[in-house]
Amino acid sequence: MKAPTKSTVDVGGLAIMPFLSMESALDHVIRDGKVQSGVGVSVNSEIVMMARSDANLRNHINAASLRFADGIGVVKTVASKGVPNVRIPGCEFWEALMQRATQADIPVLLIGAKPEVNAAAVDKLQKAGLASVSGIHGYINDEQYIYDEIDVRQPKIITVALGAPKQEQLIARLHARYPDAFYLGVGGTYDVFTGHVKRAPQLFCRLHLEWFYRLCAQPSRIGRQFNLVHYLALHMMRRL
């Protein structure tokens, strides 16, 4: 596979950065043991469709320092424009990032998810060797409390699991106030990491059918899946 010939590729108004490996994306965050401050966004088809109708979300994503293709639909659209790239699943990227943080002894703050999920994620990371990790669950409505915790703990990596676009909105406010850290929105990653939500079996992952597995497990997601159909139609018509 040849190297990408473009630094970004437009997908539905979002400037996606093509990568050929997980490691090359991770280098944008931790390089030589040091954190590169900024904001990371994993982009799938649903996010593209949301950003098409939400200018604030679109601007937030395009202003991020790292914008990688999470969903296979986005990967295929980038490839259709003649630029090779690989899919980087957001949950796998987060776990790899935590491993690098452990190796470099980088302080991390986990924001979001239910109290028991957040606590379990912190505990699991600590047992894996990440000593400087703390958490704030997603049911705390006092944003000043989050600011105070950041002041005290001084994390260099802050990941937020509140779902889009809420997590992106919080990240924008935090980044404006504390620019010397790397921020990443991670959706339901803590739930998967701690086993509270089962990830799709490997067969579904290899066939890029995680969306179908999630739909079967949570039929209430059917409304959200229409975004995937709309995205596919736009992709086939080359209107992305």
Rank of each mutant, 00 (worst) to 15 (best):
D180K: 08
Y145G: 01
L109Q: 04
I140W: 01
K114M: 12
I136K: 11
V39C: 14
K34Q: 14
Q99V: 09
P155H: 01
L207S: 10
L174N: 06
G135H: 07
H196I: 03
R206Q: 10
E116V: 11
N141A: 13
Q218G: 04
Y147F: 14
H28S: 15
P4S: 11
D191Y: 02
V78G: 13
P219N: 01
A113P: 04
C205N: 05
V11K: 03
L14T: 07
R221G: 03
L232F: 15
K198D: 12
V133Y: 06
Y147G: 03
S42A: 15
V86S: 01
A113S: 15
A172W: 04
E23N: 12
R52I: 06
A64H: 10
G223A: 14
L240G: 00
E95C: 00
S45R: 10
N59V: 00
I111M: 11
T102W: 04
H230I: 09
G187R: 04
A176G: 03
L26H: 13
K6T: 11
L174E: 07
F204H: 02
N62W: 01
S220M: 04
V35P: 06
G38R: 11
L203R: 02
A3Y: 03
K127S: 09
A15S: 10
S24W: 03
V83L: 07
S7A: 11
K124H: 00
V41L: 05
K34H: 12
V9L: 07
S37N: 09
I16V: 12
V78C: 14
P4V: 09
V160R: 02
G138T: 07
H230R: 14
T5Y: 02
V160T: 06
W94V: 10
I157F: 03
I16Y: 03
A131Y: 05
L20Q: 06
A69W: 06
L130F: 12
N227R: 15
G73I: 09
Q167H: 05
V41Y: 12
E168R: 07
I146Q: 05
L162P: 03
M236K: 13
P84I: 08
G185Q: 10
N59H: 09
R177T: 08
E210T: 12
L14A: 08
K156C: 00
Q36T: 07
